[in-house]
Amino acid sequence: MERLQKFIADCGIASRRAAEKLIADGRISVNDDVITTQGIKINPVSDVVKYDGKIIKKCDEKIYIMLNKPKGYISTVKDEQNRKTIMALVTDIGQRIFPIGRLDNNTEGLLLMTNDGTLMQNVLHPKFKVEKTYIARVAGKLSNDELCALRQGIQLSEGMTAPAVVEKLSYDDEFNQAKISITIHEGRNRQVRRMFEAIGHDVLALKRVSFAGLTLHDLKRGKYRMLTQEELERLSVYLADN
């Protein structure tokens, strides 16, 4: 058991003295009961503590989140141009977390977030060649030669891209649009869009559906959830195998 004000301080919310004032002001709840009495003890493992309605956790607890990012949100913690960021979608974590990599403003789909700097570094390090799969809706019908070019690598301004796994999923003759699955392991800026643009096809919609072996499943757009223990173990095995 642990005193509530110490727990609040360990979460990085306030000093113990300031935490006592937060308690006195009725801004702290334990298991949804507002606490105003000083000196109460809690179980930091099983009790749910909230500050102004938001769950708080100790800073040394590792958080792993999967977000289904919608279009129209910047994949940063803050934006100097005051645009909407993904932090507006993850509002009750109680700890400072960061996105692992980025999806541009007009791209939706799977985005991992964490406060585990070691995991973030490993996932983003080129040596691990973490695979990312996207579904792209593109203008026009791709020829076999164009599909082959994507698979072999595309010349961009900074050099050739690595080979990609590319599959033609469907073609809409009425709207002259193709749906393509593409898996890459590099992390260049707007890479998938630029690869298609380089062969003369604009990307009309882009969604990341898989990252490091993890998939969205039925996670709804704009929603998030914690990674399961099984997913964390799979992620660990994935990195070890690469």
Rank of each mutant, 00 (worst) to 15 (best):
E61D: 15
L214R: 03
N189V: 13
L204M: 13
R208Y: 01
G101N: 05
D116R: 09
G109C: 03
A24P: 03
E230M: 07
T183F: 14
V123G: 05
T215H: 05
A178Q: 00
K41C: 12
E61K: 02
P99C: 08
G39K: 01
L110S: 07
E167D: 15
I35M: 04
V49M: 10
D79R: 00
V34D: 10
A14K: 05
R234T: 14
D10K: 06
N115T: 10
Q152M: 10
K127E: 15
M120Q: 10
M113V: 07
G26N: 07
E61V: 12
R221T: 14
A164V: 04
Y171L: 12
F7M: 09
L119E: 07
F7N: 05
V48D: 06
R193G: 08
L150H: 10
I56K: 04
E233G: 02
S210V: 05
P70D: 03
L4P: 06
A139V: 05
D173Q: 15
D47W: 01
L156C: 07
Q5S: 14
H201T: 10
R16S: 14
Q177Y: 12
L124N: 06
V30M: 09
G94Q: 05
A18T: 13
V77H: 00
N176F: 14
K132T: 09
L232Y: 06
D104L: 09
L216C: 04
S46L: 12
I28R: 00
I40D: 07
Q81G: 02
L110I: 12
Q191T: 06
K54S: 12
R193E: 10
N122H: 13
V90P: 03
